[in-house]
């Protein structure tokens, strides 16, 4: 029983990262029609930003949670302005290839500079200890990760689905030309959307730093799992991306309890099954 709840908790934590990353991918895809292959590398960059801020400048965890996404988001803006914006008239696959190249560059450079082994990130003092829930022990930091990422995901959903700014965004997803004609600066909106999407990845990276080692390859395998999550959820809906992320994290956690050999592959198997039954994804629509 103890093991079951423990794995459920780990599943929820992994699910929180899947949700944050697939949410960023979905937001970017909605407006840019690009799948951001560099998402895993930028997640890693967020974690490294936090680590460097702490080790070199003594800037703590909570400031890193704010500063690292801003730095990575700014980098995203530069990437969009200098490179991605040249590709919008071409086949969408070129965006995938470009961001794949960027991922290789970022991961390769960090691998050569910091080595492939991970760097530990010291847990902030506030989060030492935990709560005894009777049936299981809940470390404070794990609780924080789940709550904080749920809040950020929920906040993003609220802004996109329920505010005026979000309505511009959704309108531009449907028909950028008409929205532009109404006097909204669509190219700037696209740039900021990409910046926001990768900032979410960096935020996830900072959250991951105290749990996992800060390593150059930490995002490489993760991003492939997140791709499968995105295929399962379908990219039509923001809420769908969030829910699918959390649920698949839990599914993965349960698999670790009942059939550990398949825990690496279960999400891919679910993807294949969903494709057979409902090719557009659980929350998707054909486009």
């Amino acid at each position: 029983m103890q093991a079951l709840f423990g794995q459920l908790l780990i599943g929820l934590i992994n699910g929180a990262f899947y949700a944050l990353l697939s949410l960023g991918l979905a937001v970017i895809f909605g407006l840019l029609n690009i799948i951001n292959f560099a998402h895993g590398a930028l997640y890693m960059l967020g974690a490294f930003c936090a680590w460097l801020l702490l080790e070199r400048l003594g800037v703590g965890y909570f400031w890193a949670l704010l500063v690292a996404p801003l730095i990575v988001g700014a980098l995203g803006v530069v990437i969009e302005r200098t490179m991605l914006s040249r590709l919008y008239k071409l086949d969408h696959l070129y965006g995938l290839l470009l961001t794949f190249g960027l991922a290789l560059i970022i991961q390769g450079v960090f691998n050569n500079v910091y080595g492939s082994s991970g760097q530990p990130y010291r847990m902030p003092d506030v989060f030492t200890g935990g709560y005894n829930l009777g049936f299981m022990f809940l470390p404070k930091y794990r609780a924080w990760v789940i709550v904080a990422s749920a809040l950020v995901c929920g906040g993003t959903w609220f802004v996109i689905e329920r505010t005026r700014l979000g309505s511009y965004l959704r309108a531009a997803t449907e028909n950028p030309a008409v929205v532009q004609a109404f006097g909204i600066n669509v190219p700037r909106m696209i740039t900021l959307t990409y910046g926001f999407g990768v900032a979410l990845a960096a935020f996830a990276g900072v959250m991951a730093a105290p749990i996992y080692q800060v390593a150059p390859q930490m995002g490489a395998n993760l991003i492939i799992v997140v791709f499968a999550v995105v295929v399962i959820g379908g990219m039509g809906s923001i809420g769908g991306a969030i829910i699918t992320g959390f649920v698949l994290g839990v599914v993965e956690g349960l698999t670790k309890v009942f059939y550990p050999e398949a825990s690496n592959t279960v999400i891919f198997v679910v993807m294949v099954l969903v494709l057979i039954v409902r090719p557009a994804g659980l929350f998707g629509r054909e486009r």
Binding site: N33, I34, I35, L96, I224, V225, A228, I276
Partner: peptide, 17 residues
């Protein structure tokens, strides 16, 4: 069953499996 970007992601995910 899916095209374009989805096709790329699906083949990648199956290969990872």
């Amino acid at each position: 069953r899916r095209q374009g970007i989805y096709f790329a992601m699906i083949t990648l995910a199956i290969a990872q499996m």
